[in-house]
Design a protein around this nucleic acid. Structure first.
Lengths: 346, 346
DNA sequence: GTGAAAGCGCTAACAG
DNA sequence: CTGTTAGCGCTTTCAC
C-alpha cells in the first residue's frame, strides 16, 4: 500500500471512461443537460458514480475567477460574541453556497492586514471584518482597488464600507436612565482600553453624555482596566470608587462580560455585596449573568443577527451587477434585561 | 469608475514590465535567487512593488498540488471548547504557514460529511475533526483513500486515526473520589444525550465504574437532560433526585457547562442552596464557575492544548515522507479545581 | 448533440 | 543566468 499522493480522478479520466469529451462532462457538471442526449447524460452519471469523481474546486475557481470563498476576520474568537458571529456567518454563507475562510487577529492590526492580504491572494470574493482598528487607510485602499468588504460590529469613520452594528447609543441611554430611575445617584464606567475599538468608544461616549445630563457629581466616572491583568487593576479601581462615593448610591456599568467578570471577582475579594454596596449592569448578556446573585442586569448584543446581516450584505454586493453602489449601514437593536443587580433599596 | 472585476496584475504583466520571462519571476517568487543576477533580481523586486503584484494562490495550488489549507470541522462553535480549539488550531497552523478552512456542523453527521467532502474538493491537505459521531464508516473510507485526518477530543472506535483527547478516566475518578472523601454519600450524573458522543460516553462510563465501587445505593444515578429544552427537564430531574435521596448527603456531577447552567437555574427555581442542599461539581471550567456562590468545583478541559496538538499531528503527517505510519493517540491531562460547591458539612 | 482547442495564472523540465 | 515549452484540471468559444 504505497499510494502516498493517490491522485484523484480528473475530468479527463471520466471523459475517457464515459467515452465522451471533457467538454461534455463539464457541461454535465454545470447542469447544462439541454446540450446532450438522455443517453449520454446517464452514461456520464454512471461513470461519475463509479469512479467517485469529485471535481477539483481549485481548478474550477481558477478558470471561473469565482472561488465561492468568503473571508472572515475576527478580533478574538475566544469571545462569545465572535463565536456566535462565526456561526451566523457560516450558516448564512452555506445557505448561499459560500464557504468561510476564517482568521483570528488577536485584535492586532498587523495580523489583520496579513490575514486579509493572504485571503485576497486566495481569491476570496469578499471579506467580513470585525476590525481591530488602526487599519483605516489600509481598508480604504482595498476598497479603492475594488475589494468587497463588510464591517461587523466595529465601524470605520465615515462609514465608507458596508457596516452592520448595533444601536449602542439608544440602548445605553435607556439602560442608564433605568438605573437612575431605580434610585442610583451616580454611575461609573469600567472598561478596558478604548484605543482603536469603536464599539467601546461608542459605549463610553454615550455614557459620558447621559452622565452629563444627570449632573454627575462623581469625581471620576471612568475607570480603565488593563486588558490583560484585569483582576488586580479592577480590584484597585473598585476600591477607589467606593472610597470616593461619598455615601451616594453608586452603580457601575461594565463595558463587556470580561470586565464584568473582573469586577465580580474584585467585589468578592473586597467582600462587597450587590446591589447592597453598589449597583451593577453590563454589556454582554452571557448565559451566566442570570444566576449570579439576584441576576445581573445586562444589555444583550445581537451577535447572531450581526453575523447574518453582514454575510447577507457582502453576498448581495458580490452578486450585484454594479458592485459600486453606496455603502449600506445597518443598526441591529440590542435588548435590555433588568435583574436584581440594579435594584436600589434606599 | 467602472472597474467591476478589476483584474489583478498577473505574473505575465510583471514579466513584461521587468523585461524578463515569467520563469524568472516565478523563480524570484520562490526565492531561487541563485538563478539570477543581482540586477535582474532588483529589477523584478521594483516591478513587483510598483505594480502591487500579489501571486494568485489558487493558480499556485493548482500547479503545486499543495494548497496550504487545513480543514477544521467543529461540532458547535458556540461552545467555549470549540472556540478555544479554533483559536489554537489557527495559531498553530499559522506558525507552520497553513490557513484554516472552518465549518460548524451543529453536531449533525450529514452536515459533517457534506463539509468534509466540500473541503476535500477544495484540496485541503488535511482535516482536523471534532466529529459529531455516526460517521465512523465514512471516515474509515476516507482514510483508505489516503485522506489525512486528526480527531480532536472525540474519538473513533479502535483509534484508527490520529487522535488528541483528554485523560477523562483519570480525572473523573479523581474528582469523584474527592467528592466521596469530602463526605458525600452518593453522587448522581446529569448529562444530555450520550448518543454518538464519545466524550460524554467516556465520562459517564467512568462515573458508572467509580459509583459501583462505592456501593452506590442511589436508585437512579443517571439523569438525562434534553439537549434543547434543558431547563425544564433539569428542573424535574432535580426534583426526582432530591425526593429519592433518602436523607443521604448527595452530590451531582454535570457532564458539561451547559448542563451545569441548567442545573444551577433549576436549583435557583427550587430554592435549593449549594452545597447545603446538595454538592455540585462539573466538567468545563468556564470563567464564571469561580464566582457562583462559593465557587463550583470543576474539571477543566485542556481545550487549547487539544487544538494545538491536533494541528501539530496533522501537519506532521502532511510533511512526513511516509504518510501511512500508524495513528498517534494523545491524551492531554485535564485539571481539577476544588471549590466551595463540594464542601460537605455533616 | 458533441468535440477540439485555447487558456485561467502559475511552475518546472529542459535547453541554451 | 535566462527563456521556451508544456502542462495542473477545468470551462468555454467555435466549429462540425
Amino acid at each position: 500500500m504505497q499510494r502516498k499522493q493517490e491522485k484523484r480522478t480528473t475530468i479527463d479520466v471520466v471523459s475517457r471512461h464515459a467515452g465522451v469529451s471533457k467538454t461534455t462532462i463539464s457541461r454535465y457538471l454545470n447542469g447544462k443537460y439541454e446540450f446532450m442526449s438522455e443517453e449520454t447524460r446517464s452514461r456520464i452519471q454512471a461513470s461519475i458514480q463509479e469512479l467517485h469523481y469529485q471535481p477539483n474546486a481549485m481548478a474550477r475557481s481558477l478558470k471561473n475567477n469565482k472561488t465561492g470563498l468568503i473571508g472572515l476576520i475576527v478580533g478574538d474568537i475566544t469571545h462569545p460574541f465572535s463565536s456566535i458571529l462565526v456561526k451566523a456567518v457560516g450558516d448564512t454563507c452555506e445557505k448561499h453556497g459560500y464557504q468561510v475562510l476564517m482568521a483570528n487577529t488577536d485584535d492586532d492590526a498587523k495580523k489583520e492586514r496579513e490575514y486579509i492580504t493572504s485571503m485576497l491572494n486566495r481569491q476570496v470574493e469578499g471579506l467580513i471584518i470585525n476590525t481591530a482598528g488602526g487599519n483605516e487607510r489600509f481598508l480604504a485602499e482595498l476598497k479603492d482597488h475594488g475589494i468587497l468588504m463588510c464591517l461587523a460590529d466595529r465601524r470605520l469613520p465615515d462609514n465608507i464600507l458596508d457596516t452592520v452594528t448595533t444601536d449602542t447609543e439608544r440602548v445605553t441611554t435607556e439602560m442608564l436612565e433605568l438605573v437612575y430611575q431605580a434610585g442610583f445617584e451616580q454611575v461609573a464606567f469600567f472598561t478596558n482600553s478604548l484605543h482603536n475599538n469603536s464599539a467601546r468608544q461608542r459605549r463610553y461616549e454615550t455614557f459620558r453624555q447621559v452622565t452629563q445630563r444627570h449632573c454627575q457629581t462623581l469625581e471620576k466616572p471612568l475607570y480603565l482596566i488593563g486588558d490583560k491583568s484585569g483582576e488586580q487593576s479592577c480590584f484597585d479601581a473598585l476600591e477607589t470608587l467606593m472610597a470616593s462615593s461619598g455615601g451616594k448610591k453608586t452603580a457601575v456599568l461594565t463595558v463587556n462580560g470580561v470586565v464584568l467578570l473582573d469586577l465580580l471577582n474584585a467585589a468578592k475579594a473586597h467582600g462587597y455585596s450587590i446591589p447592597r454596596d453598589f449597583g451593577l449592569c453590563s454589556y454582554d448578556g452571557w448565559s451566566w449573568a442570570g444566576i449570579i446573585g439576584d441576576g445581573i442586569s445586562v444589555i444583550t448584543h445581537p451577535s447572531y443577527e450581526i453575523g447574518k446581516q453582514s454575510a447577507e450584505l457582502i453576498i448581495a454586493r458580490i452578486n450585484s451587477e454594479d458592485r459600486d453602489y453606496p455603502p449600506r449601514y445597518l443598526e441591529i437593536p440590542s435588548t435590555i434585561e433588568i435583574r436584581g443587580s440594579t435594584r436600589c433599596d434606599k
